[in-house]
C-alpha cells in the first residue's frame, strides 16, 4: 500500500498507481478556510510556526493528502514592491498598491533577499517545520505564475497593453521574474518541499488568447517546470478559466501535471493532451454550496473523467463547509 507521498510523487512521475490522489496544493488553491484559520489568530500568513500549524490543521480537518503553504498568492509581489493588505481569517491577502508603473521600473527592482525580505523566509521556514512532521505526507510549496506576478506588480491593464506594444520589454521583464521564481522554488525544495505548484490565474486563454499564450506563457512555464524537476521536485501547473483555445499549447510544456478550472472537460483535455498527469476539477462553487451527498456523486464523476489527481478546480471560498471537503476526500479514498 502506497503512502500519500509515494502515491503523489509516483503520479507526477507518470507511473500507474492504486487510485487517484486527492489534494489541495495551497497558494491560490489553498484549503485554508475561515473555520481552520480563526483558531490561529491573525499571524498565520506571517509566522512560520503558525503557518505550519495551520497547514497541519487543514490536512487534519479536510483529509486532503498533502500539506501546502503559503495560503495566498501575494508573497512574491510583496517583495517586489507591491503593498499587500494581509487580510484575516475571513479575507485573503490582497495586493492594494502596485510596485511599478513601467517596464523599466520592473527591471530595476532590487533582487529580494531570501533571508530578510517580506515573507519569503516565513514560507521556507514553515516548509522546514513541516518537513520534520510530515512523514508520509507530501509537502507542496507554491509559487505565483509569471504573468500573475507581473500583473500583481504592475496594473494588469497597463501590462496587457504593453504585451501588444512593447513585446521585447515584456519578455525581458518576464525573464527576470522567472529567474527570481526559479530561485524561490529552489529555496522551497531545499527546505523540504516535495512538489512545487505554479498557479497563474492571470494567464488564461480567455484573457490572453492562444497567440499571446504561446508567446508569453508557454516558454516561461516550460523553464519553471524544467528547473523544478531538475531541483528534484514534482511540478503542478494550474490554469484558470476556459482553456479551449489554449489546451493544445500544453503539449509543448513538459514534465508537469496540469490542473484546469471546472468549466474545462477533463476528458477533452485528455484527448488533446495525452501526455501529462491531469489534476482537477471539482467546482468550488459546488463545494461551497452543495450537500455532501451531491459532492460524493460529483467526485465519482470527476474520477471517471480520468484525472490522476482529484482537487478543487480553483481557489475555494473561505467559507466552504468542512463536511463538503471531507465528502470529497473520503470518496476518493473509498471511505
Amino acid at each position: 500500500m502506497l503512502n500519500e507521498k509515494e502515491r503523489l510523487l509516483a503520479i507526477l512521475q507518470g507511473e500507474d498507481v492504486d487510485r487517484p490522489a486527492v489534494i489541495c496544493p495551497g497558494g491560490m488553491m489553498s484549503a485554508a478556510t475561515t473555520k481552520v484559520l480563526e483558531k490561529f489568530g491573525d499571524r498565520f500568513h506571517s509566522d512560520p510556526g503558525l503557518m505550519a500549524e495551520a497547514a497541519l490543521a487543514i490536512r487534519q480537518t479536510t483529509g486532503f493528502e498533502n500539506l501546502g503553504v503559503p495560503f495566498c498568492l501575494t508573497v512574491e509581489a510583496e517583495v517586489l514592491g507591491s503593498r499587500v493588505d494581509p487580510g484575516d481569517a475571513s479575507v485573503e491577502p490582497l495586493v492594494t498598491e502596485y510596485g511599478a508603473a513601467t517596464l523599466d521600473e520592473m527591471l530595476n527592482l532590487p533582487a529580494p533577499s531570501f533571508q530578510r525580505d517580506g515573507r519569503l523566509s516565513i514560507v521556507t521556514d514553515a516548509i522546514g517545520l513541516l518537513a520534520e512532521k510530515s512523514e508520509g505526507t507530501p509537502i507542496i510549496g507554491n509559487i505565483t505564475g509569471p504573468i500573475s506576478l507581473a500583473t500583481s506588480i504592475m496594473d494588469p491593464m497597463i501590462f496587457f497593453r504593453l504585451m501588444g506594444k512593447e513585446k521585447q520589454g515584456v519578455h525581458r521583464v518576464l525573464d527576470r521574474l522567472i529567474d527570481f521564481l526559479v530561485l524561490f522554488a529552489r529555496e522551497q525544495i531545499r527546505a523540504g518541499a516535495h512538489v512545487i505548484s505554479i498557479a497563474d490565474p492571470s494567464a488564461t486563454g480567455d484573457i490572453l488568447g492562444p497567440a499571446n499564450f504561446r508567446a508569453f506563457v508557454v516558454p516561461g512555464l516550460n523553464r519553471l517546470a524544467a528547473e523544478i524537476r531538475r531541483a528534484g521536485a514534482g511540478c503542478i501547473i494550474h490554469v484558470c478559466g476556459r482553456a479551449g483555445t489554449i489546451v493544445d499549447e500544453f503539449n509543448d510544456i513538459g514534465s508537469a501535471a496540469l490542473s484546469f478550472d471546472s468549466v474545462v472537460s477533463m476528458k477533452k483535455v485528455r484527448d488533446r493532451v495525452p501526455g501529462p498527469p491531469l489534476m482537477g476539477n471539482l467546482s468550488t462553487h459546488m463545494l461551497h454550496t452543495n450537500t455532501p451527498e451531491k459532492i460524493n456523486r460529483a467526485t465519482r464523476r470527476n474520477m471517471e473523467s480520468g484525472v490522476e489527481i482529484v482537487s478543487p478546480a480553483c481557489g475555494i471560498s473561505l467559507s466552504t463547509p468542512h463536511e463538503n471537503l471531507r465528502a470529497m476526500t473520503d470518496t476518493v479514498k473509498g471511505l
Binding site: 497593453r161 506594444k165 480567455d206 490572453l208 499571446n212
Partner: peptide, 14 residues
C-alpha cells in the same frame, strides 16, 4: 469570436 483577446481589445479601445 475569440479572434481578439484582452490585450488587443485594450489597444483598440485606446
Amino acid at each position: 469570436n475569440e479572434e481578439y483577446f484582452i490585450p488587443e481589445l485594450l489597444l483598440c479601445s485606446d
